[in-house]
Design a binder for these strands. Structure first.
Length: 303
DNA sequence: ATTCAGGTGCGAG
DNA sequence: CTCGCACCTGAA
């Protein structure tokens, strides 16, 4: 494979493979639109841990170049994880029929829904509650470094339920979890004990799976919908965070306030199984792609 | 020093 | 069901 343009490099062992990407698939938007917190920007690509391996991804005109995976089976799993199976073009054409989405989708096109590991996704969004992105990333990174398996010199996999269930509250708090520490530990315990079967939820209906998740400590409507959408691929899920709430109120309810519950119901009735995709486009648009750190501190709220 | 940040749990009307 | 409020903690 010599499809790389000049300047691309990898310090990763092993060969690289090419994953074809049907347009309008956009890896950067997919990974940077709030679904996942553990991929790190690495030059013009990203790096992270997948299936216990340190990998690097970079999208090129020919497709996504993948370093770190050898077995074809692993590559196919990555393909599934990245949401490359979904007919994005058709989905976006359908969404574009909505007047609101039709105006903004040109700027958000290419967002795919990931199929994350439910466990890691669940903990990630429990940690995300009433939190900010840099600190969410910090906490998840510390959890991995402290409790997860080391897979490379500077890369750790996400800790298993059993490992977090065995963690002390003190050690968890050291990961800057704050009051979420008991949530993380207790959910880990429930999963370890089998009181909730995350794998079984894959085949469950949206409502049933949602009820199961809502029974967990630290999991409310928003976190549940994030997991249902970003891990289980339940398209009816429409996570309503503060940004999406404001966007929907402004563009679909003429600025009138609505409860999160009602906004979710509205979205499901309007977009059906594509509600989740609609949410991603709305979120990405209102949130913008401001770089992390200190840039982009727009204060304007009304717009 | 204060303020803020991608919700949740809880009590009350 | 809706509303109001407290809440760990790192960064600005």
């Amino acid at each position: 494979m010599a499809l790389l343009s000049a300047g691309d490099r990898s310090d990763l062992p092993g060969d690289h493979v090419l994953l074809p990407t049907p347009p309008p698939y956009h890896l950067g938007r997919t990974l940077q639109c709030g679904q996942v917190f553990r991929w790190q920007v690495d030059g013009t690509g990203v790096r992270g841990v997948f299936l216990g391996r340190r990998v690097r991804l970079q999208q090129t005109p020919e497709g996504i170049v993948v370093w770190g995976l050898a077995a074809d089976r692993e590559v196919q799993q990555l393909r599934h994880y990245l949401g490359l199976d979904a007919p994005l073009d058709a989905i976006e054409q359908r969404l574009a029929q909505d007047p609101v989405l039709g105006r903004l989708i040109a700027q958000t096109s290419g967002i795919a829904l990931l199929r994350q590991d439910p466990w890691e996704c669940l903990i990630s969004f429990i940690v995300s509650a009433f939190n900010n992105i840099p600190k969410i990333e910090l906490s998840l990174d510390r959890l991995a470094r402290r409790f997860g398996p080391q897979v490379a010199a500077d890369a750790w996999g996400f800790p298993t339920p059993a490992l977090l269930a065995a963690a002390s509250l003190r050690a968890l708090r050291a990961c800057a979890l704050g009051y979420r520490a008991p949530y993380v530990r207790d959910v880990a315990t429930l999963v370890t004990q089998g009181q909730v079967d995350l794998d079984a939820l894959r085949s469950a209906e949206y409502d049933a799976a949602r009820r199961a998740l809502l029974a967990l400590p630290g999991v409310g409507a928003k976190v549940a919908d994030c997991v249902l959408l970003f891990a289980y691929g339940k398209g009816e899920a429409f996570p309503v965070d503060v940004w999406v709430k404001r966007a929907v109120e402004r563009w679909y309810f003429r600025g009138r306030r609505r409860t999160e519950r009602r906004i979710g119901e509205f979205a499901r009735s309007r977009f059906g199984p594509l509600a989740g995709y609609a949410q991603q486009h709305l979120f990405y648009f209102v949130r913008g792609t401001r770089p992390r750190g200190r840039a982009g501190r727009r204060k304007g709220r009304a717009g």
